[in-house]
Simulated assay, not measured.
Amino acid sequence: MARPNAGTKGVPRLDRETQILSIASEQFGTYGFAGTSVGTVADIAGISKPLIYNYFGSKEGLYEACLARGGALLGDEIERIARGESVGLERGMETLAAMFTLLQPQRHLWRLFFDSTAPTDGPIADSIARYTDRIGALAQEGVTELMALAGNDDELDVSAMTSVWLGMVDSLMNWWVEHPEETADDMMQRCVRLLDALLGAGGR
């Protein structure tokens, strides 16, 4: 008897790969590299494990493909804002809004790049570093603009503020993952309130 979730033949390879990567990204982003099995991804997709190995070679190859897909989506969106007209705090808020909108239906993608169970050396580690370095470089560019507007070009201050910004974004994304009822618009309104509270408190 055929499995109830058995896949159908004749699905174009590109469509099948997209389906596999969507499922695998959610599994890796939710349960981590160590907690995800190829068998589980195959069962959810309604296909066989050998098909996944045929497409991606290994569990590591599947994870790398998920990183490439997610990294391109995130990096391209952040860079789109960076190449726009906004500078300083406005650019930062537009970047957050774009990320929330992009990640709303797939917020697990963020955790692919900050998975403590992922390999710390080899191709996966290199891929993670490549995409996080791209995000970090764009963040530093934006922070440099912000600090320049405040008349501060101290390199260590820029470095420290970049770390603060990246840490804040990571904390917000992780909080959002743990609160699935919050929409992208909810998060932006919350960020505005938090920023207003922070600046207001600093002004008293």
Rank of each mutant, 00 (worst) to 15 (best):
N5S: 10
N5G: 06
T8Y: 12
Q19T: 14
Q19G: 12
Q19D: 14
I20G: 09
I23G: 01
S25G: 15
E26Y: 07
E26N: 07
T30W: 14
G32I: 10
G35I: 01
T36S: 08
V41A: 06
I44M: 05
I44A: 06
G46E: 06
G46H: 01
N54I: 13
Y55C: 03
F56M: 08
G57D: 08
S58L: 15
K59C: 08
K59A: 05
G61R: 06
G61I: 09
G61Y: 06
A65L: 14
C66Q: 02
C66L: 05
L67R: 04
A68W: 12
G70L: 04
A72D: 14
G75M: 03
E77R: 12
R80G: 11
A82M: 04
G88H: 06
E90G: 10
T95M: 10
F100C: 07
T101S: 15
L102H: 05
L102W: 05
L103I: 04
R107H: 00
R111A: 15
F113D: 05
F114Y: 15
D115E: 02
S116T: 15
T117W: 11
T117V: 11
A118S: 03
A125G: 03
I128V: 09
A129K: 07
A129T: 13
T132Q: 02
D133E: 14
D133W: 13
I135T: 10
L138G: 03
L138N: 02
A139F: 02
A150T: 13
D154C: 09
D154Y: 14
E155W: 07
L156D: 12
V158R: 07
S159L: 13
T162P: 06
T162H: 00
W165I: 03
L166T: 00
M168L: 15
V169G: 05
L172V: 14
N174R: 15
W175V: 09
W175G: 07
H179E: 13
P180F: 01
E181A: 09
E181T: 10
T183A: 07
D185C: 11
M188S: 10
Q189I: 12
R193S: 11
L194P: 06
L195P: 04
L195Y: 06
L195R: 09
D196R: 14
D196W: 05
A197T: 02
L198V: 13
L198M: 11
L198E: 09
A201H: 13
G203C: 13
